[in-house]
Simulated assay, not measured.
Amino acid sequence: MVLSYLIIAILLDWMLGDPYFFPHPVVLMGKLISLEERLAFKYCKNSRAEYIAGTLMVFINCFLAVAVPGFILYLLKGRAYQVFFIYSIYQAISARMLHYEASQVKKATERSLDEGRKRLSYIVGRQTSQLDESEIYKATIETVAENTSDGIIAPLFYIFILGPLGGYLYKAINTMDSMIGYRTEKYEYLGKVAAQVDDVMNYIPARITGLLMGIMAIFYGRYHETMASIKKYKYAHLSPNAGYPEAAIAGILNVSLGGGHYYFGQYIYKPMIGDSKKEISPSDIDRTIRVMYGTEVLFILFYSILTILLIKM
């Protein structure tokens, strides 16, 4: 039954994405985190206080992410329970939205550099005002690659283990990390615990994503190159996890990703991922999107096989 709910939720995501007019739990999480951040910076007078406030944010938001939908599921019965169960899975994944946003960046950049920079700023934390065309495409590819793990495989992994509440829990942690988990002077202490918890939560999913992308590389005739890229560059990232999907995509596309950028006015060094000197093109974004969908399909395929085996045991 859960497998059928999962498949329905994924099909809904592919067909609908995340319409801007439709209320989304992550938007509510983001508003709460923004409020908590403002209060923390207003009342915390030193780094220790910011660290404690950031720790409390993690506990409060994780509790609410599980308690609120858990209570709703407890109250619902029959068809209403099924609908909310499916919705809970659907809202946790974001393949169609990743596809849409990456395509919009590509189209905007083809119209003008300024439009591309502005559109890219909607989906990345780095400053985009000085990026050239190739850097815009590279940042888009990196975002799709990393979010194949963060926005698709990781929530599905925790839904597989903990049910829909696992998806809510993961999204709360990942949203905190995306908002305050930066290694900058401003967020060094407030976002430290959120970033550390996010690293732990993504440890297994990131490696699963890299492995699945390695399998996808077979269809591009670059399996050995991709696995070699993962082996060489899996730790060539400030995150202990993001290097896996980015190294895999670099191997599949035969491009170089990574490199330092400005975040909130502060330059953050990042190592390069990949040895290729090939110019990144708009078509590389399209290929990355196809790898993203293929990775999701492979995960569901293995999930289905494992579920069937467990039922028969």
Score class of each variant (00 low, 15 high):
Glu115Thr: 06
Gly125Met: 11
Tyr137Ile: 00
Glu110Asp: 07
Lys118Ile: 00
Gln127Pro: 03
Val105Arg: 07
Thr140Arg: 08
Gly125Arg: 04
Leu120Ser: 04
Ile123Asn: 14
Glu115Ala: 11
Ala108Met: 12
Ala108Ser: 15
Glu142Leu: 08
Glu142Ser: 03
Leu131Pro: 15
Asn147Gln: 13
Ser129Asp: 15
Thr109Arg: 06
Ile141Val: 02
Gly116Phe: 04
Leu120Tyr: 02
Lys106Gln: 07
Leu113Met: 12
Ser134Asn: 15
Glu142Cys: 01
Glu110Lys: 11
Arg126Ala: 09
Asp114Lys: 13
Tyr122Gly: 07
Lys107Leu: 14
Tyr122Phe: 15
Tyr137Gly: 05
Ala145Asp: 01
Leu113Trp: 13
Arg117Leu: 06
Arg126Glu: 05
Leu120Trp: 01
Leu131Gly: 13
Glu110Ser: 07
Glu110Cys: 00
Asn147Phe: 13
Lys106Ile: 05
Thr140Glu: 14
Lys118Thr: 02
Gln130Ala: 13
Gln104His: 07
Glu133Val: 13
Val144Cys: 01
Ala139Met: 05
Asp132Trp: 02
Val105Asn: 09
Asp114His: 11
Ser103Val: 09
Asp132His: 01
Gly125Glu: 08
Thr148Asp: 10
Ala139Ser: 15
Asn147Asp: 05
Thr140Asp: 13
Val124Tyr: 08
Arg111Gly: 00
Val144Ser: 04
Thr128Trp: 10
Lys138Pro: 00
Gly116Arg: 07
Ile123Glu: 08
Glu142Asn: 02
Glu115Gln: 15
Glu115Trp: 05
Ser134Asp: 14
Glu135Gly: 10
Asp132Ser: 00
Ser112Lys: 04
Thr148Gly: 15
Ile136Gln: 01
Ser129Pro: 05
Ser103Leu: 12
Glu135Ser: 12
Arg119His: 07
Ser134Glu: 15
Ile136Glu: 08
Asp132Lys: 00
Arg119Thr: 14
Gly125Tyr: 03
Asn147Met: 12
Lys118Gly: 00
Leu113Ser: 09
Lys107Arg: 14
Lys106Pro: 02
Thr140Asn: 12
Tyr137Phe: 14
Val144Lys: 00
Thr109Glu: 10
Thr109Cys: 11
Leu131Asn: 14
Lys138Ala: 06
Thr143Tyr: 09
Gly125Lys: 08
Leu131Val: 12
Thr143Trp: 10
Thr143Met: 10
Gln130Met: 13
Glu135Tyr: 05
Thr148Glu: 03
Arg117Lys: 07
Leu113Gly: 03
Lys118Leu: 11
Thr128His: 10
Leu131Phe: 15
Ser134Tyr: 14
Ser112Thr: 10
Arg111Tyr: 05
Thr128Glu: 04
Tyr137Cys: 03
Leu113Glu: 10
Gly116Trp: 04
Ile141His: 02
Arg119Cys: 06
Gln127Arg: 14
Lys138Tyr: 01
Glu133Ser: 08
Leu113Thr: 08
Gly116Ala: 06
Glu146Gln: 08
Ala145Gly: 08
Leu113Asn: 12
Arg126Asn: 09
Gln130His: 15
Ile136Tyr: 05
Val105Tyr: 09
Glu133His: 13
Lys118Ala: 04
Ser103Gly: 03
Gly116Ser: 09
Ile141Trp: 00
Val124Cys: 02
Ile141Lys: 01
Glu110Val: 01
Ser129Trp: 15
Lys138Asp: 00
Val105His: 02
Tyr137Glu: 04
Lys107Asn: 11
Arg126Val: 02
Arg117Ile: 06
Ile136Cys: 00
Gly125Asp: 06
Ser103Glu: 07
Val105Lys: 11
Val124Pro: 10
Asp114Val: 02
Ser129Gly: 06
